[in-house]
Design a binder for these strands. Sequence first.
DNA 1: CCCATTTAGTTACCATGATAACATAAATGG
DNA 2: CCATTTATGTTATCATGGTAACTAAATGGG
Lengths: 149, 149
Amino acid sequence: MFFLKELPSQQMVATYAETYGADPAHITSALLMMRRASLLIRRLDAYFAAHGLSQLRFLVLIVIDREPERQSLAPNEIASRIDVSKPVMTRTLQSLQQDGLISLAASQTDKRSKEAALTAAGRQQLQDALPGYFRILSEEMAHPPAAGD
Amino acid sequence: MFFLKELPSQQMVATYAETYGADPAHITSALLMMRRASLLIRRLDAYFAAHGLSQLRFLVLIVIDREPERQSLAPNEIASRIDVSKPVMTRTLQSLQQDGLISLAASQTDKRSKEAALTAAGRQQLQDALPGYFRILSEEMAHPPAAGD
DNA sequence: CCCATTTAGTTACCATGATAACATAAATGG
DNA sequence: CCATTTATGTTATCATGGTAACTAAATGGG
């Protein structure tokens, strides 16, 4: 989470930009982008929390659901579609299973691995969360950020 | 940290956008912005770690340093300039003090409060980190993200 | 003035990210 | 075919964010 409510002054940016051949406009736009993205992510996190989810839990459900030809994915495959470390994936899948949103079965073909599939509750939770998710994204980009945002 | 390596398909976005009156282009650009910002933040985190800092530790040093008329700020004032909770500020200031980058003294005027000031080492650490920080921001925005980024 | 409220900081606890080290199974190649 | 290497998942530990509840001090209305 990035956050400086007031950006570095134009003078400060200009001084460093000059010295190091960087473009002050680029620096400012990078800072604005990070602040805007951070605010959006914060808003999404609050939304997911209200739905008993989190960014990662939501993404896991999406990734399993959107696989066209299959009912389940291995944790390994899920992790490769989302940029997250293996231990975090292990923990997240276990918590989703505890909450009844996915099932975790031993893989038939690879004894090291597992098969994660959506339960009916998981599919429902995903369907419940998707509309608001897209609405937030759309709203956020519909209006440019105000200066003081 | 946001991350879905492959964005939701155009069809999926279009379906939801239609149903809920959202603009598919807005949704896609929001997802791209979050991914781009996440990659940049990750890169900055790695940079700060190499300098014995973190995003927040760096921001705290900047905020104290850039105060034009004063040598020190209260934790409360620092927290109000950065968007971070009080307990995190407490912890961060203590760690910066342990590392010798700031001094923390009791406030003369308010017995509840403290005064955080940069040490010479803290000022030096900040000066060392600033050029690379601005360089990364500038580089990042200099080239538009590739499709597979 | 004094008691209630507000403010500043801290403590305790939880969520969620990472890496390192490990056990076990699969794959590979001599 | 067996030994080494690679791949999968887990555990342990750490970093860094949050909220709730607490203490102590300042503030302010009666």
